[in-house]
């Protein structure tokens, strides 16, 4: 018994404990630093994220329909829910199109067939701006650029939309 006890000397015992405690403290200091270093990787990106707009691809027709959804936006120091909407339809090639409803003139909300005279165009009620079905502005009306296009993605037959991206002027 006494032999075994002597296997660990007082000096060794102190060394072990000090190394142990020291290592523990060092780990305690390093872990948050490491976590901070890799934090940007783990973080979910708020912007540029695709949002489920609650529309099945099968329900999209050639007739533009308006979809509304909400995203959380961090603006300065407060977080807010922002409502977004889009005009969604299938073009003649069967490709899905999603246009921003914001008029490129002064930012009113355009609607499909909003004018009785031009049922096959997007119409802005503020200054009679018009866009063809492919989103390009009708020359001679106030807007000078085509409607913005949403980034889109289809996951499991459900439509996901991202940010609206401007197009080149016509």
């Amino acid at each position: 018994m006494s032999d075994k006890k002597q296997q660990v000397s007082r000096r060794q015992f102190l060394n072990y404990t000090l190394t142990g405690v020291g290592g523990f403290m060092a780990a305690g200091m390093l872990a948050p630093m490491l976590r901070m270093a890799v934090d940007p990787v783990l973080k979910e990106s708020g912007q540029g994220d695709m949002a489920n707009v609650g529309l099945s691809v099968d329900d999209i027709t050639t007739e533009p329909q308006k979809v509304d959804w909400k995203i959380t936006q961090v603006d300065g120091w407060y977080e807010s829910e922002v409502n977004r909407s889009a005009w969604v339809f299938k073009d003649e090639n069967g490709d899905i199109q999603a246009f921003s409803p914001v008029c490129k003139h002064l930012g009113c909300v355009v609607s499909w067939g909003g004018s009785d005279e031009y049922p096959e165009q997007f119409f802005c009620p503020c200054h009679d701006g018009r866009y063809y079905k492919d989103g390009t502005n009708v020359p001679g009306t106030p807007p000078l650029q085509p409607l913005d296009v949403y980034e889109l993605e289809v996951r499991d037959g459900i439509l996901f939309l991202g940010d609206a991206v401007p197009r080149e002027g016509a």
Binding site: C103, C108, C124, C126
Partner: peptide, 8 residues
């Protein structure tokens, strides 16, 4: 205001 921002 959001709807009619360009004229109102």
């Amino acid at each position: 205001e959001k709807e009619l921002t360009g004229r109102m």
